[in-house]
């Protein structure tokens, strides 16, 4: 565990906490894409199936369980408890356009053709694009609340910090995992436009608003 990896995990955890607190405190999930949240649940469920077969460390196990549990809790809040506030008119991204190609890609490009390995690979590919419905929602409504921007910034930073972790691990441990690295690069690139708006607007106290 290096500092980039730890900061990445903490940033990921922070993003989840910000999102849950935002929904809970405001009693509203307006501006949040339920489609992206469903995709994240699929990502964690398919990636962490190895909880049943391998033990890495208590830290690893606890974090995996937290990510799985909180992703389902978020879906419960959005689709059951605060259903009336869910922005379904704007959350119209067709998730099968992400689920099907990433699954096919996982069947074609993986380390080993086994159920667990293909599902792990699928989760990595799917995670890299899972934020698209959320970015699509923001682009449709042309704005995001500050708290939603903080959530997106923390969530985007997590994989960016993992990129630094992979550089560190390659240099220090000669360890590298191409599937995760390439997907992580794609994932981070998708956030770049948002990062730019966050730094130039939200950090200066302005609301994140897209030009008309």
């Amino acid at each position: 565990m290096n500092i980039f990896r730890l900061l990445g995990d903490l940033s990921h955890l922070l993003a989840i906490i910000i999102l849950l607190l935002k929904i809970w405190k405001s009693r509203s999930c307006a501006g949040i894409s339920g489609k992206s949240q469903i995709l994240f649940s699929v990502v964690y469920t398919t990636r962490y199936l190895d909880l049943l077969t391998t033990h890495v460390s208590p830290y690893n196990t606890v974090m995996k369980l937290v990510f799985i549990f909180t992703s389902y809790a978020t879906i419960y809040l959005m689709y059951v408890k605060f259903k009336a506030t869910y922005d379904h008119n704007h959350d119209t991204f067709r998730i099968e356009f992400l689920l099907i190609p990433t699954f096919i890609l996982a069947l074609l490009i993986n380390h080993e053709f086994t159920v667990l390995e293909v599902l792990w690979t699928f989760s990595i590919y799917l995670e890299s694009v899972a934020i698209l419905p959320q970015l699509f929602l923001v682009s449709k409504t042309r704005e995001a609340e500050s708290i939603t921007s903080h959530y997106l910034f923390a969530l985007g930073s997590y994989r960016a910090l993992y990129l630094l972790n992979w550089v560190y691990r390659y240099v220090v441990e000669s360890h590298y995992e191409l599937i995760a690295i390439i997907s992580g690069v794609v994932q981070t690139i998708l956030y770049c436009d948002f990062f730019y708006l966050y730094i130039t607007k939200v950090l200066k106290g302005k609301k994140l608003q897209l030009p008309a």
Partner: peptide, 10 residues
């Protein structure tokens, strides 16, 4: 056969 890298990351 290619080795499957260890999954110690999240």
């Amino acid at each position: 056969e290619e080795d499957v890298p260890a999954k110690d990351e999240l």
